[in-house]
Design a protein around this nucleic acid. Sequence first.
DNA 1: CGAATATTTGCCTGTCGCGCAAGTCCTGTT
DNA 2: AACAGGACTTGCGCGACAGGCAAATATTCG
Lengths: 201, 201
Amino acid sequence: MAGLRERKKQATRQALGIAAMRLAVERGLENVLVDDIAEAAGVSPRTFNNYFSSKYEAICALAVDRALRTGDALRARPPAEPLWTALHAALLAEYRDDGGAPDPSWTNGVRLVTGQPALEGEYRKAQALMRDALAEAIAERLGTRPDDMYPLIVAGAATTATEIATDRWLAADPPTSIQEHVDRALLELALIWTRPLQETP
Amino acid sequence: MAGLRERKKQATRQALGIAAMRLAVERGLENVLVDDIAEAAGVSPRTFNNYFSSKYEAICALAVDRALRTGDALRARPPAEPLWTALHAALLAEYRDDGGAPDPSWTNGVRLVTGQPALEGEYRKAQALMRDALAEAIAERLGTRPDDMYPLIVAGAATTATEIATDRWLAADPPTSIQEHVDRALLELALIWTRPLQETP
DNA sequence: CGAATATTTGCCTGTCGCGCAAGTCCTGTT
DNA sequence: AACAGGACTTGCGCGACAGGCAAATATTCG
């Protein structure tokens, strides 16, 4: 198991990330200082910068963790499972908990991250990380050669599809569960994949 | 035609972007101050921030312009042309000039942007912009409905392919022309598109 | 327990982003 | 051609920030 030192570091990192997100949602992005985040997480301001190099990075730490978990989720699927089934399951696993009503604090977090221009860079980094994590897991699963683009292309398409699903979910009125949108977008993706690239549909 | 005011603004923006890139390549990213960039472009430091909100954004301004040009290049292709042909041409158009030997200053610029962690956020933003610009042009060309994911998915795949091509080009030893890599990656993409998603290859 | 190693913290400095107000330069009108 | 109105630039100033450095504190391992 991981030593105490490592677990404490993870806990601090998580506390900082959660505090950053919560404060930013509550007060608005520009009304949160690094010092506030550090205080809320119970560490010194200087320590904040040992973990994150900006408050934007801290706010998006949750998205980064989610990206990595999604890669792991794909790896955890049975190796014999067809790729598409495994991808589908891995991408939906993240939202498995919220049965019907979406958690409003989560909703607001997503709205913040996707809506604030100052966060776009960090958000895109997290998205790219998810794509790469998925691609690596796909490559392992398929045993493709390192220079085969297939894993990255598929992972990219899947990531884009969940991005679209998120947009639609945020825009949905009345609000519905996000799984529904992700599921739907992935189905559309499967259909799109069968469309040829050459011609108009 | 555009008024003098507008043209001056474009010129200043470009001068700042070019100066930022050149200085960063010459001295290293962290040895360039905003003041240096402003001075090299012949404007006051305060004016710098009227155009860009960080030096990283200024450095990536060239990539942003390139992304927009690529979208325009696709729009400029004959409407009757098959999508794939038009995409191929639009993506290669950007590099049409450097015939054989890659311009070392451009190479170093790309190496900087893709290699420096501090620039990743801005770089990803530029990539996303290219994807979206391409997607919009594709949607216009095909006349798809606004909620059809097809344009975004295809644009994303094409963008990822050029990203891979760039990586390979930077790694290529001995150096070769980048068109070759882009061309090759796009061909691979066309092949990949015909692979089913369900099974191992 | 004690040495070796990692992490936290306080202090400090150079840099930054931007609000504000004054100055300067375009533009369209008369 | 002059002028009024609006847009862009510039200097000043302030709050915030990122990270180097070294001392203090905590964890690990022999």
